[in-house]
């Protein structure tokens, strides 16, 4: 497979997954804030609720260049729609579609038409501002666009090398997202003082929902909500498709398939993925990560970032060349 094509497939998977993750987090946050209890003495529910989202998305610096206050209008707009935010849902879908466009001869026509329709609806005709139902509707549409796309891909794209590169991108992005969401939540609960139980539960529900884990968690544990069990579920569960362990195991398997078809390429990426997966599979108690920090959340995030670099150097050896419009000469 052409290196450039493999890279396009990988990024297409990542960007669509990113659009879905961002839309989930935003939507949950928006709905949970509507009925959030007031906390006396807190520095303001609005800032407390919206600012952490910028940390999850690693978007704080860029946000500050455009806005003064992280409030319920600016943050959702920035994360959902702002054209200058490269991580906004809108930008993610636009990038996904750019990659798909470069793959038009490679992916199925149905996949292309699905992403192109979503692009026309959510990027070209995106809402101008966030009003009452707009954010929720937009987030639901973005999530459904992702489901539709990956569903069509599952049913129409041959499950060969190309599929595996797309899946590698998708699950790397997902593992990274679950880790970051959890990391920011743990930091938040650390800096907060003791609050009424109702508030804590409210936050726990929101955390689970933001990675679509609420119902699965309830079915898995027959006890109530409990931070320790939530961390365990999101980090170590073997079968929940958004847990860090599940994503990493699937990633190892995927990179294994890739390597099988590219026996002349270096096996470094597979080795790194396997090492990371065996670390997380060996952990019995989530406290080893959240309390003892062996490894810490940040270590895991860093190792995923390192794996991304290795994947790129092993399989996508090309440095992307930026083609300017003038170089793109016209034809008769």
């Amino acid at each position: 497979m052409l290196s450039r094509i493999a890279e396009n497939l990988y990024w297409m998977g990542r960007y669509i997954e990113r659009a879905e993750n961002t839309s989930r987090i935003l939507d949950v946050n928006y709905l949970s804030i509507l009925e959030a209890p007031q906390v006396l003495g807190a520095k303001g529910i609005v800032t407390e609720k919206w600012a952490p989202l910028l940390d999850i998305m690693e978007s704080k610096e860029a946000f500050k260049e455009h806005y003064k206050r992280a409030d319920g209008v600016n943050v959702p707009y920035w994360l959902a729609l702002h054209p200058e935010n490269v991580a906004s849902i809108r930008s993610s879908l636009r990038f996904a579609r750019e990659n798909a466009r470069a793959l038009r001869d490679r992916i199925s026509t149905e996949m292309w038409e699905a992403i192109n329709r979503s692009y026309l609806k959510l990027c070209v005709s995106a809402p101008e501002k966030i009003e009452e139902d707009v954010l929720h509707d937009y987030c639901v549409s973005a999530r459904e666009a992702s489901h539709l796309f990956f569903g069509i891909a599952h049913a129409t794209l041959p499950h060969d090398l190309g599929w595996y590169f797309m899946r590698a991108g998708q699950f790397l992005e997902r593992a990274d997202n679950t880790l970051r969401t959890l990391q920011v939540n743990i930091q938040q609960s650390g800096i907060r003082g003791p609050v009424e139980a109702g508030v804590e539960i409210h936050r726990d529900i929101a955390l689970l929902k933001s990675v679509s884990a609420y119902e699965a968690y309830r079915k898995y544990y027959d006890t109530g909500l409990n931070s320790k069990l939530i961390y365990e579920f999101l980090l170590l569960n073997e079968s929940f498709p958004r847990s860090v362990r599940y994503c990493l195991e699937l990633l190892s398997e995927t990179i294994g398939k890739i390597q099988l078809e590219n026996l002349d390429a270096s096996s470094k990426a597979l080795e790194e993925a396997n090492a990371l997966t065996s670390v997380i599979c060996a952990i019995q108690d989530e406290a080893q990560i959240t309390v003892q920090a062996k490894p810490s959340m940040q270590d895991l995030i860093n190792q995923i970032a390192a794996l991304t670099m290795t994947l790129s150097s092993v399989y996508f050896t090309l440095q992307p060349v930026k083609i300017s419009q003038t170089q793109s000469q016209s034809q008769a």
Partner: peptide, 24 residues
């Protein structure tokens, strides 16, 4: 020349229909 060329759709379409690789 790539996806920003005005005829990119045609290039990818012909590659797909012929079943050959589209390259830059």
């Amino acid at each position: 020349p790539g996806q920003y060329n005005s005829a990119y759709f045609e290039h990818s379409y012909l590659a797909q229909q012929m079943g050959v690789q589209l390259v830059e």
